[in-house]
């Protein structure tokens, strides 16, 4: 079976452009937030491995605010892609890292793709990838999907992560004492109920946050761990995405 790679990130950061580049497909791209609302799938072959790449809808957060945020969130949590590429805009890195940190609460197999690096350079923004990678605890690659910069490095890193050659120590957001205490209380109980398959700390936070939609998803998951695959079919033929 092919390994899976999910592309996550804010709208309009060039996820679809990277997706097209990796898969050789021609999903419609545009300077336009909200271009991808359904997820699209394509195949990527590197020298060593075959991957299925999934282009998730671009969202500002991964809480259940809207239908597209749910699609992206449920995919990462329940379908557990082998690698999640978080695509961020180099020209507004700080704001874009928001979603990266949210992804890191959900999975430790993530790579940060700092896209539009050519544009950032033009604007006089310099990004130091070593300290960034150290802080986040995951590999950081500077790329430009439009100009095809940094892609070989990205493919190498993807292969290495697949082969288990990369150790990650994802950045954990620290909350205040009251919240951390409650998380500590909740975590073991959650593990008891849903097992180790889902990130307990993250689920604890969502419960504290009162996320009812996630509660529903969790229940469906308990009844049938494969449910998400049926609930969110990828975009296929009939849809008008290419128009």
């Amino acid at each position: 079976m092919a390994h899976t790679i999910a592309l996550a990130g804010n709208p309009n950061t060039g996820k679809s452009t990277l997706f097209n580049l990796l898969t050789g497909l021609k999903q419609h791209t545009g300077n336009w937030p909200g271009k991808t609302v359904l997820r699209a799938e394509g195949e990527l072959k590197t020298e060593k491995h075959v991957y299925t790449v999934i282009d998730l809808p671009g969202t500002y957060s991964l809480y259940s605010n809207s239908a597209d945020e749910e699609v992206a969130r449920d995919y990462i949590i329940f379908e557990k892609p082998d690698i999640t590429l978080v695509v961020v805009d180099a020209t507004s890195l700080e704001r874009n890292l928001n979603i990266a940190l949210q992804v890191l609460e959900m999975t430790d197999r993530a790579i940060l793709c700092v896209n539009l690096i050519d544009e950032a350079r033009k604007k006089g923004i310099h990004i130091d990838k070593e300290p960034l990678s150290k802080q986040l605890g995951i590999p950081v690659i500077l790329i430009s999907a439009r100009e095809k910069i940094g892609i070989i490095q990205l493919l190498k890193t993807i292969d290495q992560m697949t082969e288990g050659k990369i150790e990650t120590q994802p950045f954990k957001i620290k909350y205040n004492q009251t919240v951390e205490k409650k998380i500590k209380q909740l975590e073991p109980q959650i593990k008891q109920i849903i097992g180790n398959a889902l990130p307990a700390r993250w689920v604890a936070l969502r419960i504290l946050d009162g996320d009812i939609k996630l509660l529903d998803s969790l229940k469906s998951y308990l009844q049938n761990p494969d449910f998400v695959a049926e609930k969110h079919q990828p975009a296929q033929g009939g849809c008008c995405h290419g128009a």
Binding site: I125, K129, P131, L136, I173, N176
Partner: peptide, 18 residues
């Protein structure tokens, strides 16, 4: 908390020249 974290992370790694 997320905003504080992103701020501290980018402090060392993003430089703006002019």
């Amino acid at each position: 908390s997320i905003y504080q974290s992103t701020q501290s992370i980018t402090k060392d790694s993003v430089h703006r020249s002019g």
